[in-house]
Design a binder for these strands. Structure first.
Length: 409
DNA sequence: AGGTATTCACATGAAACTATTCTCTGAGTTAGG
DNA sequence: TAACTCAGAGAATAGTTTCATGTGAATACCTGT
């Protein structure tokens, strides 16, 4: 019999957290430290809407976890408040293009926008033009300024091209009463480089960059949040510094730093400790990685899993060879495809074409499960040299999940 | 020896196809008056 | 006669196939010494 009582007791005692919400990733703090300059800039760019004028289109860059979304949300709530106060007709709508269900096609973005404006549209089945017109009519009902914020706009453009943005920009000429301003947020700094110059110039009438936080700033952010989120004295010296250093190394991602701290706290709590010490940061880091990978592996499609399985098997094979005659040999796309075909036969699955497998390998790379380099072996052609990123005991776990799910041995 | 041309084994791109999901429409059916 | 049902048409999407083109360097092939 497990000691449930003990578990429950320690949960009730809740020895570490004071207010956990505060370090959860969806928490919106009232103060955003080290971003005053950017916030001021954005605010002054957007301010004209209060006078009923269209504000310049704005483009915001910055890596993940640099406070872009937070800042813009903060500003828009303040702006809305002010607008209400003085009775200006302003609508500010925020759309996150990354959330898959919300918007990753032109159609869905329009649908999401319409929904934000308080109307319904069918999820699919209508011609895009119709949805477009509906959106137009909805906005043009009265004289107003509409500001649309596209978070992670690079995702959309990558998927559906720049035409969409272009037509949104051009929309203004079709509107008789209302006016639209666009705000694009991207974490890909090179995003603007290779898009249609017409779109580029009109989208980025103004540009603001959010630089990554450095370790000191991260420490500061962590400190303020920690004071509210954790009980006094529950964080050992050096923990925050280490957390900040970790995150600073990963391009100054504050969200990541906070996650790290929270998970560390949770781990410590689960073990019934009253203090978070340095070792928990490492453990938390591992756990976050681990959970992410396991989640991807479990939820991947069957074909995905088949290919990953092939790669795992090849990796093991290569490891073995290495031990035997210390030939450091790598494996390539062709190897993966051959083994994959065998596995397909074994599991009675229709194999995909090499073309598709090649794409899936790229996707696995993007997800961070594998890594490859495109190399040329001269006379023996050009291919990708593939290696699994997953290490140690996690491999076994992944292998097991794959085997269970695929029904192979 | 040194320079060029080939050639391999895929990478990378674009377009077209397929299965599925969803709406809308209008004909046919039903139930109630 | 109004309300309901249900099949078919049309649209969008994700996942894939088909066809086409690109590519870096080891190797084969020359060339002149």
């Amino acid at each position: 019999m497990a000691d449930l009582n003990g578990i429950f007791d320690s949960a009730v005692r809740n020895s570490i957290f004071q207010n956990k919400e505060i370090i959860q990733s969806n928490y919106i703090p009232e103060a955003i430290p080290h971003r005053d300059k950017q916030i001021e800039q954005i605010a002054s760019i957007m301010a004209p809407v209060l006078r009923g004028e269209k504000c310049s289109n704005l483009f915001i860059y910055g890596k993940t976890g640099t406070g872009k979304t937070l800042s813009i949300q903060h500003i828009s709530t303040e702006l809305k408040k002010k607008a209400k106060e003085i009775g200006a007709d302003v609508r500010i709508e925020y759309i996150n293009c990354k959330l898959k269900k919300v918007a990753d096609t032109e159609y869905r973005i329009l649908a999401a926008l319409i929904e934000l404006l308080g109307e319904q549209v069918a999820e699919t089945g209508l011609p895009t033009v119709q949805v477009y017109n509906k959106f137009l009519n909805l906005i043009d009902t009265k004289k107003q300024i509409v500001v649309i914020i596209f978070d992670e706009i690079d995702q959309v453009v990558q998927k559906i091209g720049t035409d969409f943005i272009y037509s949104l920009i051009r929309l203004n000429s079709e509107l008789s009463k209302a006016q639209i301003s666009l705000i694009g947020i991207s974490n890909d700094v090179t995003f603007l480089d290779d898009i249609d110059p017409r779109v580029k110039s009109s989208l980025s009438e103004e540009e603001i960059v959010f630089p990554p936080y450095n370790a000191l700033q991260l420490q500061d952010i962590l400190n303020t949040r920690t004071k509210m989120a954790f009980k006094k004295e529950s964080i050992e010296k050096g923990v925050i510094e280490k957390c900040a250093a970790f995150a600073a190394r990963e391009h100054g991602d504050a969200r990541r730093a906070l996650d790290l701290l929270r998970v560390a706290g949770e781990l410590a709590e689960r073990e019934g400790k009253t203090k978070v010490d340095l070792s928990y940061i490492d453990k938390a880091n591992q756990k976050i990685e681990r959970d992410k990978i396991l989640d991807i592996v479990e939820t991947g499609t069957r074909q995905f899993q088949l290919i990953l399985h092939s790669i795992v098997q090849l990796t093991k094979r290569v490891e073995k060879e290495k031990v035997k005659n210390k030939e450091i040999d790598r494996f390539y796309t062709g190897d993966v495809y051959n083994l994959y075909q065998e596995v397909c036969k074994e599991t009675r699955t229709e194999p995909l074409t090499q073309r598709r497998v090649s794409d899936i390998i790229s996707e696995l790379d993007m997800l961070g499960l594998i890594r490859f380099d495109v190399i040329s072996k001269g006379r023996h052609g050009r291919t990708r040299e593939i290696a699994l990123v997953i290490s140690g005991n996690l491999i076994d776990k992944v292998e097991k999940i794959l085997k269970d799910s695929l029904g192979v041995d």
